[in-house]
């Protein structure tokens, strides 16, 4: 067993979670406020990865980003970005795949706050951005934590999307879940067991931390 796939998995999960957080906060804010007619469509799209087989998502991304296709070709020629079989491609796929795990907790957290909190802030001369940053987000810390940890854990556990778009290139796209599959195929049950145990422990610990903090057992870390 090597540590490379584990480290790559953690890097992927960290990068994905960071990007998702930046994307999901404005998206969740918009969803919690809007009365637009396209809201159900956006909500359905955000939730799609929950029900769609990861291989479907991976398959279409593979097609879209392949240099044989117009979009992939354009990315490659004009921006020098190759998303197929690369770490950047994995991050992009993981962001889409884990989107609902970040958006849903933040959206429900924001929706649960009384409207008068933001209205009070507006009447006190504050902008929407200041209100979001100083009033709304600090008051939904448990939801933010849930979103971050679930996205991280979910990205660690993904397999189908990674396999389709990333393949199995050591040091680049060979994450732990792929390594397990690979070792089992090669009948290296010992190595597969090593990776599996580490993933099992990591998943358990991250989830345990969420429940400990949000359950108020570690009060000094919360509001």
């Amino acid at each position: 067993m090597e540590w490379g796939p584990i480290i790559l998995t953690l890097k992927l999960a960290a990068a994905t979670t960071a990007i998702l957080f930046v994307l999901a906060v404005p998206l969740a804010y918009w969803l919690s406020r809007t009365t637009s007619r396209i809201k159900p469509v956006v909500e359905a799209l955000v939730s799609m990865p929950l029900v769609l087989p990861p291989t479907v998502l991976g398959f279409y991304m593979l097609l879209a980003f392949s240099p044989q296709n117009a979009f992939g070709d354009w990315l490659d020629k004009w921006l020098g970005i190759q998303l197929v079989f690369s770490f950047a491609g994995l991050v992009l796929a993981s962001v889409l795949y884990s989107l609902p795990f970040m958006v849903h907790p933040i959206q429900s957290g924001l929706s649960s706050l009384p409207n008068t909190l933001s209205e009070a802030s507006y009447t006190l001369g504050k902008s929407k951005w200041t209100t979001l940053r100083k009033v709304l987000l600090p008051n939904i810390r448990p939801s933010l934590l849930t979103g971050i940890v679930l996205s991280f854990a979910h990205t660690m556990g993904e397999f189908g999307v990674v396999l389709m778009i990333g393949g199995n290139i050591p040091g680049k796209t060979r994450v732990a879940s792929i390594a397990i599959y690979d070792e089992v195929e090669a009948l290296n049950y010992g190595a597969a067991n090593g990776y599996s145990l580490i993933l099992l422990a990591l998943s358990f610990i991250t989830l345990l931390v969420v429940y400990l903090i949000n359950g108020g057992y570690l009060k000094r870390f919360t509001v």
Binding site: P114, T116, L117, E119, A120, S121, Y122, T123, L124, G125, K126, S127, V135, P138, N139, V223
Partner: peptide, 17 residues
């Protein structure tokens, strides 16, 4: 935010954080 008012809400709307 540009109207010169003070508004006291029925539910107080104090910021819990």
């Amino acid at each position: 935010r540009h109207r010169n008012i003070g508004y006291v809400f029925q539910d107080y709307a104090l910021f819990p954080n």
